[in-house]
Amino acid sequence: MLKVEHLTKMFGGLAAVNDVSVVFEAGKINAIIGPNGAGKSTFFNLISGMHQPTSGRILLDGVDVTRLRCDKVAQLGVGRTFQTTNLFEQATVLDNLIVGHRLRTKSGLWDVLVNSKRLQAEEKASRDKAREALDFVGLSHVENQYIADITQEQRKRVAFALALATDPKIVLLDEPAAGVNPEETEGFAALMKKMVANGLTVCLIEHKMDMIMSLADKIMVLDHGEKIAEGTPEQVRSNPLVIEAYLGSDEDVAA
């Protein structure tokens, strides 16, 4: 599904991501963990086209997407959420989601001026896709509410739905469970499993280790921009480098 080869991103003299290679399999839940400042979000920004790498390659289903703009990467099937959920506060939930499917439409200025049949058909398709995504995340009942009036947990679900409305193959989730309580965290874990059950590939950044260890099929660990480990949760949990850099030992936790 997603193959990264020797990916490097320099900001001046700082290597935010340094020679990282990894393969994320289709239909799996893949996690990226590491300390703050390890390069996790920069890694996502490179995959999604928000940043251009200094060197290396990114392949999506065998297609080289390394130098593509973020809108082109999204058209090829990469959906994305962010650490901070930025939505249109004074628009309804449904109107926020209609934007997601726009990258699949072809109407231009002329279609708008004459209210063409193509525009009308694409407007309906975008609205239908928005409602489908909203139903998937369990928020059909709030489609007409303003973003300003819904809860933090609901906003995060709307962000999930916005990514789904783009018709992705793989979804990059940047700290999806940050700032929510344990019950809500379980709900997001169930939602990610549902995404995979419906044919999607999930890649997430997260600091909640209990969730990651019980959820992920594969984990990659970054530290100071470099990959220091990858493998199953069991392999990562027992890796000495990971324990030293991030997880800590049982004695450290007890202290």
Rank of each mutant, 00 (worst) to 15 (best):
L2G: 07
V4Y: 12
L14V: 14
L14K: 02
A15H: 10
A16I: 08
D19Y: 04
S21D: 10
F24C: 13
F24K: 08
A26C: 05
K28R: 02
I33R: 13
G34F: 11
P35C: 11
A38N: 03
T42F: 07
T42Q: 06
F43P: 05
N45S: 14
N45P: 12
S48K: 14
T54I: 07
T54E: 12
S55H: 08
R57M: 00
I58S: 08
I58N: 07
I58M: 08
D61L: 02
V63D: 13
V63F: 10
T66M: 01
V73C: 11
V78S: 13
V78I: 15
R80E: 03
T84P: 00
T85W: 04
E89L: 15
D95Q: 03
V99C: 15
V99S: 10
R102Q: 11
S107D: 05
W110L: 13
W110V: 14
L113A: 06
K117F: 05
L119R: 09
Q120E: 00
E123D: 12
K124R: 11
S126Q: 12
A133F: 06
D135Y: 08
D135S: 13
L139S: 00
S140N: 14
V142S: 03
V142N: 05
E143G: 04
E143R: 10
I147C: 07
A148N: 03
I150F: 10
I150A: 06
T151H: 10
K156F: 03
K156M: 01
A159C: 13
A161M: 04
L162W: 00
A163K: 06
L164F: 01
T166S: 08
P168M: 08
E175S: 09
V180P: 05
N181L: 01
E186S: 01
L191R: 04
K194H: 12
V196R: 14
V196N: 13
A197R: 09
T201S: 15
V202Y: 03
K208R: 06
M213R: 05
S214D: 15
E234V: 12
Q235F: 11
Q235D: 08
G248S: 03
G248I: 12
D250P: 02
E251Q: 14
E251M: 12
D252K: 14
